[in-house]
């Protein structure tokens, strides 16, 4: 008896090890379908594209260093687009976050019928081409700003209209899940409503604000759909965006420039996102202390 037991021990260990290995392989098995597609359509070509960005042209495959990158950076169209995009994101994203925070506060306070909330959120589901009729009439016939120097105002308004819904959903969930006793305690301490917003509610919703910010940035790229539908590939200079620049570079078949531009675009976004996460982590650490 004892003999057989001692024999089993190492065998069991072996089996356990083998099972662990199988478990590891199983993980790969589960992600495989997704990973293959993700690699084929995103990762591999993304890496291959780096090569293109250093070539002279599609036909002349000689290494030209960073000259494609320099070309892009010194191009007037690119600079114009970058300037417009930054302005749009700075004003648009800030306004969208502020408006949705205030709206969420009001809705949280007065708890209106759910149809009212639904009406404000519904625009996120409406295709851009559907409302092009309305917006074209509003911004060219009624207030003719789409072809003026103030075209950016129209774009920002459309962006706010279309993206406040997402932010509102996130903020409302944060507010309703907030511990009410903290607010009550602040009330007893004699704080007024504004003080409570500033010192209690706003800090408590910071994690949601981070998420709202990311969603707003992603949505800010999608406003291009509306601008493209309204104004086509070559809109008024004031609303010529990076996406226009890249679409048009693509159509002119200068892939080398385009890849260079897209890597810079990607790098800027990653750096920005990284910085934001870093600040968020530091902030939440500070809160814990």
């Amino acid at each position: 008896m004892e003999d057989s037991l001692s024999k089993m021990e190492p065998e069991k260990k072996k089996k356990k090890l083998a099972r662990k290995k199988i478990k590891k392989l199983k993980g790969y098995l589960f992600i495989l379908p997704s990973l293959i597609g993700f690699s084929i359509f995103f990762i591999i070509p993304f890496l291959e594209g780096i090569k293109y960005s250093f070539y002279k042209s599609g036909f002349i495959k000689s290494f030209v260093g960073f000259s494609n990158y320099k070309d892009v950076l010194s191009s007037g169209a690119f600079r114009l687009a970058l300037k417009n995009n930054l302005l749009f994101m700075l004003v648009g994203v800030t306004l969208a976050i502020a408006i949705s925070f205030l709206l969420a506060l009001v809705i949280y306070e007065i708890n209106p019928p759910k149809h009212i909330k639904l009406a404000i959120i519904l625009p996120i589901a409406i295709p851009s081409a559907v409302t092009s009729g309305f917006f074209r009439k509003l911004f060219t016939s009624s207030f003719s700003i789409l072809d003026s120097d103030y075209a950016m105002i129209a774009v920002i308004l459309i962006y706010i209209w279309r993206s406040v819904g997402y932010n509102l959903i996130i903020y409302l969930a944060a507010l309703t899940s907030m511990d009410k006793s903290i607010i009550e305690a602040a009330k007893i301490d004699g704080s007024n409503y504004l003080q409570r917003i500033r010192h209690v509610i706003f800090p408590l919703t910071i994690p949601s604000t981070v998420f709202v910010f990311i969603v707003s940035v992603i949505n800010s790229f999608k406003v291009f759909r509306d601008v493209f539908i309204l104004e086509g590939g070559y809109p008024n200079q004031k609303i010529y965006m990076l996406q226009h620049y890249m679409n048009n570079t693509f159509r002119n078949l200068s892939y080398q420039r385009l890849t260079a531009a897209s890597y810079m675009f990607a790098l800027a976004i990653f750096a920005f996102a990284g910085l934001f996460f870093y600040l968020d982590k530091r902030y939440s650490k500070g809160l814990e202390k």
């Binding site: 591999i44 679409n247 675009f265």
Partner: peptide, 17 residues
């Protein structure tokens, strides 16, 4: 990382593939 990229950035890789 790929989630936050706008289409214009992934359009080139897509096209290459």
């Amino acid at each position: 990382l790929v989630i936050i990229l706008p289409f214009q950035v992934t359009m080139v890789p897509n096209y290459i593939m």
